[in-house]
Simulated assay, not measured.
Amino acid sequence: MVVPKAKVPDVLQLYHSGCSGGHLGVKRTLLKIQERFYWVHCRRDVEDWCRKCTSCAAVKGPQIRSKGALKLYNVGAPWERIAIYVAGPFPVTESGNKYFMVVMDYFTKWPEVFAIPNQEASTVADKLVHKVFCRFGVPLEIHRDQGRNFESQIFQETCRVMGTQKT
């Protein structure tokens, strides 16, 4: 059946937003309409109708999702820049540890994993100085999350004394 231009909004309302429509989206609404009706620029009208539908827009949310800015870090030597992450809690081991501290070199991708009993700043700083800095040297930068253990005065003072910048 050929639909006059004046009746196109009624058909779109019925097949997209009505009881039998259910806000099915462009493809399925277009298929349902094309089974029974025809008019010039049918596809364009269905796409416009679905795009302007406030119920569909409310469910779908914004179409353009913002993405975080990515940075390219150039590292010229091993252990120049490291990343630290504390994972856990895990089941307590026989030696009383229930966290893992993961330290990874950006240049070589070499991971070092240490079992620690807690994630307090003093424990993290102690492990970092005695197990990483003593073996591999002091890095220029330490990349870490914004956990309380990395924001504490002890950790900040350790980085200041060692001459390491936090990112």
Rank of each mutant, 00 (worst) to 15 (best):
residue 2 V to P: 07
residue 5 K to F: 07
residue 6 A to F: 09
residue 7 K to Q: 14
residue 8 V to T: 11
residue 9 P to F: 04
residue 12 L to S: 08
residue 12 L to A: 07
residue 13 Q to N: 15
residue 17 S to P: 05
residue 18 G to W: 06
residue 18 G to Y: 02
residue 20 S to G: 10
residue 22 G to L: 08
residue 23 H to I: 09
residue 25 G to D: 10
residue 25 G to W: 08
residue 26 V to D: 07
residue 27 K to W: 12
residue 27 K to P: 03
residue 31 L to M: 14
residue 32 K to Q: 13
residue 36 R to L: 11
residue 38 Y to A: 14
residue 41 H to P: 02
residue 44 R to H: 09
residue 45 D to T: 04
residue 50 C to T: 03
residue 50 C to M: 01
residue 50 C to A: 06
residue 50 C to W: 01
residue 52 K to S: 13
residue 52 K to R: 13
residue 52 K to H: 08
residue 53 C to K: 00
residue 56 C to M: 03
residue 60 K to A: 10
residue 60 K to F: 05
residue 61 G to D: 04
residue 62 P to M: 11
residue 64 I to Y: 09
residue 64 I to A: 11
residue 64 I to W: 05
residue 66 S to Y: 08
residue 67 K to W: 09
residue 69 A to P: 00
residue 73 Y to M: 12
residue 74 N to R: 15
residue 74 N to Y: 14
residue 75 V to E: 02
residue 76 G to W: 08
residue 78 P to V: 02
residue 79 W to Q: 01
residue 79 W to K: 05
residue 82 I to H: 00
residue 82 I to L: 08
residue 85 Y to D: 12
residue 86 V to R: 02
residue 87 A to W: 09
residue 91 P to S: 04
residue 92 V to K: 15
residue 93 T to H: 01
residue 93 T to S: 15
residue 95 S to I: 00
residue 95 S to W: 03
residue 98 K to G: 01
residue 98 K to Y: 00
residue 102 V to R: 01
residue 104 M to S: 10
residue 104 M to G: 06
residue 105 D to A: 04
residue 106 Y to H: 12
residue 108 T to M: 08
residue 108 T to R: 08
residue 110 W to P: 06
residue 111 P to M: 09
residue 113 V to Q: 04
residue 114 F to T: 00
residue 118 N to L: 03
residue 119 Q to W: 05
residue 119 Q to Y: 04
residue 119 Q to S: 09
residue 120 E to D: 09
residue 120 E to C: 01
residue 120 E to G: 08
residue 124 V to K: 03
residue 126 D to Y: 14
residue 127 K to R: 12
residue 128 L to Q: 03
residue 128 L to T: 05
residue 130 H to S: 15
residue 133 F to D: 05
residue 137 G to K: 03
residue 137 G to L: 04
residue 139 P to C: 07
residue 142 I to L: 13
residue 143 H to R: 09
residue 146 Q to E: 10
residue 148 R to K: 15
residue 148 R to P: 14
residue 149 N to R: 07
residue 151 E to Q: 10
residue 153 Q to K: 14
residue 154 I to R: 03
residue 157 E to S: 13
residue 157 E to L: 13
residue 161 V to R: 10
residue 163 G to Y: 08
